[in-house]
Amino acid sequence: MTKLKNAMRYLVLLIAAFFSLFPLYWMIVSATNTSTDVIRGKLTFGTNLFQNYQDLIAVQNLKMAMINSARNAILLTLLSVLVCSIAGYGFEVYHDKYKDMVMKILLLTMMVPFAAVMIPLFRQFGNLKLINTTIGFMLPSIATPFLIMLFRQSTRSFPRDIIEAARIDGLSELGIFLRMFVPTMKSTYAAAITVVFMAAWNSYLWPKIIMLDPDKFTMPMLVSNLIAGYVTNYGVLMLAVTICTLPTGILFLILQESFAEGITGSVKG
């Protein structure tokens, strides 16, 4: 009985793992096959990878989209983590009833759907000449209540004695944050960087609205543009999707624990 139950357990997990991995396996394999082979259901690696690549860069500016995505995502990640970590630290270390109130008000914006702010932001950014700029791409998502909460929660585990000792040693408040807090909280920073980078790399709706110039297209936009035609070359399409997925996929595989900590960290008490 227990043996059967144990076997069932593994069976369910195996099925779940299979269904989770299969679409990704199919995506990668298809990137190496011709469109005809993909349609014929070929599930093994082929030899058409180079040809698919040639066909892809013939119709889409892959290099530019990669550079745009990388620049946008890296800059946004750095700025966002900087602004939100110092805010989360500030809300916790210097908290008083007014700052707590401000935090509660900021948390309300977790309920604001992006669709509700994108139209006013688009009109405003048009007036401010921020269309087609990296700053325009970044501004709406630099500060998020989610990330501030993550840093506020993790600051709770940062020993107050360190702050007091550093003050006695004559370190300024900013100095304490930069030289004591940041190096100590490496794992929280890794978690935040992973979550923000993945979201920034993958973002689609806002770049689609604000990056109107084809020279500013990002990877998700490039991939999405490939399905606009009537005839789909599945090999080329799956190669583009694979390339778009590689950076976040590799980051995920290396920093899986950080990512898990990042998505759940803001809610742990």
């Binding site: 793992a17 989770s20 990704l24 993945m198 991939v223 996929g249």
Partner: peptide, 11 residues
């Protein structure tokens, strides 16, 4: 089982 959320929504 966790891996699918490394893919972008578009992908």
């Amino acid at each position: 089982i966790f891996l699918p959320c490394a893919t972008s929504l578009v992908s």
